[in-house]
Design a protein around this nucleic acid. Structure first.
Lengths: 168, 168
DNA sequence: CCGAATTTTCAATAATTATTGAAAATATAT
DNA sequence: ATATATTTTCAATAATTATTGAAAATTCGG
């Protein structure tokens, strides 16, 4: 397979992959493109490679910057802005985990805390099932939260080798 | 907070949560409803509780059954079908991980294998960056795949206590 | 400060995805 | 077998989400 074709495959399947994870296609594709680009790219480069409009490109680049996955680069002597993505995949994964934890897991745990304190007699099976379900989700969620915190701090080498031994 | 209100909150936020994970709102809400229901429910029960149409209810129940999260229950003397959800959250998580691994991670790893074998001179930085990116994603993906396999087999008690020690 | 280059915004539109509801198919009791 | 209850399908529609493109805002060199 030629590089051009391989790049197309990579970008389009990264985009499709993203849609399964609540990330929009274009955002994932821009990210994919930057991941495989040795040098920083401009908005125009991305528009051309991915055949998307200026507005779409711009909004999704900003979103990737918010996620901490892409950053602006200033190239001296150039008027245009350039962008580059973190290439260390372990760092990328940690960054995504960190953001999703903050945006989704933490608010969910806060809600569960409130819901667990529902009024009512636990001898009523409706109350009991509700409280039991909420409590068990909360328990697992809290554990996941701690685990992810540690993961976020970890080095890849440590992570891989520890897990290899642990889950052999 | 009263039970009725708490249930509403739980169902609607479980639905919103689902949409961040590529699961449609209704499917997540039906699942939530079944999780907190002490007894099996019929399609009509769900239609009424969630204010959704028969067709929508039916399609999403079947989808939940495909995911292995819900099953039919036959109640003797009843003409209607009843449905119930697995209540053990650890089993639920394992089932979801198992399915998503099969549906998303494994096909991605297969693709990466092919893309890694791209033609071209690795002294060309475009080729090099492409191959390096693909390889490192593949490496991490393969590790995740193994780790998840072990997790799928694990008992919750084992999982929680091991991780507690590991990630103290 | 001026003017050109560049970036950003956002209302309009397109594309995608979810939902309805009624008809068809299936199952069951008598 | 027939009538009735129940489930399933799916074309039509609604709702949501993504994308465009042109106008406005900003930046920056001279």
């Amino acid at each position: 397979m030629k590089l051009t074709e391989a790049k197309q495959h990579f970008i389009s399947s990264w985009g499709a992959f993203g849609t399964h994870w609540g990330i929009n296609r274009t955002m994932a594709q821009i990210h994919a493109l930057l991941l495989i680009s040795p040098d920083p790219l401009t908005q125009d480069d991305m528009m051309e490679e991915l055949n998307i409009s200026r507005g779409n490109t711009n909004m999704n680049i900003r979103e990737l910057i918010n996620w901490g996955l892409v950053e602006r680069v200033l190239l001296s002597g150039e008027r245009k802005e350039y962008f580059t993505a973190e290439k260390d995949i372990w760092k990328v994964v940690k960054q995504i985990v960190k953001e999703r934890k903050k945006r989704e897991l933490e608010p969910m745990l806060q809600l569960l805390d409130k819901l667990e304190a529902v009024e009512g007699d636990k001898r009523d099976k409706h109350v009991k099932t509700f409280v039991d379900t909420v409590s068990s989700i909360k328990k697992l969620g809290k554990q996941a939260d701690k685990t992810l915190d540690t993961m976020i701090k970890a080095e890849e080498s440590w992570f891989v080798s520890s897990l290899m031994k642990m889950f052999k």
